[in-house]
Design a protein around this nucleic acid. Structure first.
Lengths: 212, 212
DNA sequence: TATTCATGTGACTTGTTATTCATATTATAA
DNA sequence: TTATAATATGAATAACAAGTCACATGAATA
């Protein structure tokens, strides 16, 4: 956790440090981001940095948690608007939409999250990563179980596998978005995401049942 | 390129260095793999290492190219056995099979490749990575075009997107395999991979045409 | 204004790891 | 056997980046 001193800082200064850190972590990942560069860009002294944060890790965890919270808010908002909905695919589509909106409106935060996801052998983040992924797949699993009960989806699937596949399909869309910066508008990414949802959705659908 | 001295080495010694490097790069990725550890495990002197390789990068590129070559061999072999085949899905299944076999039989080489794929901001590897991905998607694109001509696949798809999706679905299977070491046999990974091929395949199929 | 507390500072220390180099050993050829 | 080339060695160096610290400045209160 950042120190009291950091939170006492004038908003402008505080946000400058945060924004610069986010953009560096997003661009270079954890290891290659240097405190030296952060302080230079934020125009503060090295010593000051260590008055604000215990160490590099402290800063990173702070930003990571920020990213997770912001993303969760997007998902919560979307789920609220889906309340009462019975159709699995609309749920999954909603989850995709929330994730895409989060990424579009917070490109660098989304990049920080994806970098953590891809990181290797970082004991500290392994737990965060696992929790984070579990949260995503658990939600899908819950929906899948209901969808199978409702005969909406074929029952000959392994729920764990498929939840993982659907989760990954979503990550894939986000990656595509983050790696192809030219795709920065809803107009371009939406048809793309919908196509994927449609393709995988068609493959999953219980063909014995007509669409609802 | 490793030096003449390295290639002159007795096979046992040479392979020891290679194997240890592969397993360390696979386990820890490029940055966290230390020459000091390689040298210690391979039981050679630090100075010797620098008689064999220009630097750490030289070693890594050598191993990376080795991995690419080995993987290509698996694909070439599979493609040969598919010669004359007209069905898109059998091709795609074949590609999956080749990749899975490569990964199962060369776990660490596969991990090295996946690590490179996930690496950020490594100018040197960006080109290799891009080439490598282009190769994978180009193959799928070629098949997709034929499949659409044959009415095997719906025509309302963006070939670039879908090729990328199919390519990623494959990477997803490999990741799942590499991250869940307990899945180390053909028996366990095959039904899993087939399920994914089936799901996405069903979604892509032209429903106006009966299966061939 | 004097005292105290909070914040700012950047040269220095520490730790880490790639890379070098002067020297020793071993193999090869004459 | 001797000379020459090839290979081996590990302590020393270099480069880099995180984290510290003794001191400076500023703000708040009495």
């Amino acid at each position: 956790m950042p120190t009291k001193t950091f939170f006492n800082l004038a908003d402008e200064k505080k946000n400058k440090v945060i924004e610069i850190s986010i953009s560096l972590f997003a661009e270079r990942g954890y290891t290659k981001t240097q405190i030296t560069e952060i302080v230079k860009k934020a125009d503060i002294a090295k010593g000051s940095f260590y008055q604000y944060f215990d160490d590099k890790n402290d800063l990173f965890k702070y930003i990571l948690n920020k990213a997770i919270k912001v993303k969760e808010d997007y998902i919560k908002k979307e789920l609220k608007s889906l309340e009462g909905e019975q159709n699995f695919f609309r749920y999954w589509k909603g989850l995709n939409k929330a994730n895409i909106n989060f990424a579009l409106e917070n490109l660098n935060l989304a990049r920080v999250l994806r970098n953590v996801y891809k990181i290797k052998n970082f004991e500290l983040f392994k737990i965060i990563k696992r929790d984070y992924e579990k949260q995503g797949t658990d939600l899908i699993k819950k929906w899948l179980i209901i969808a199978i009960k409702n005969d909406e989806i074929k029952s000959d699937i392994n729920i764990g596998y498929i939840a993982h596949l659907l989760y990954t399909a979503n990550c894939f869309i986000i990656d595509y978005l983050l790696e192809n910066e030219e795709i920065d508008t809803q107009n371009k990414i939406d048809p793309y995401a919908n196509k994927i949802v449609e393709i995988i959705g068609n493959g999953l659908k219980n063909s014995r049942k007509k669409e609802g």
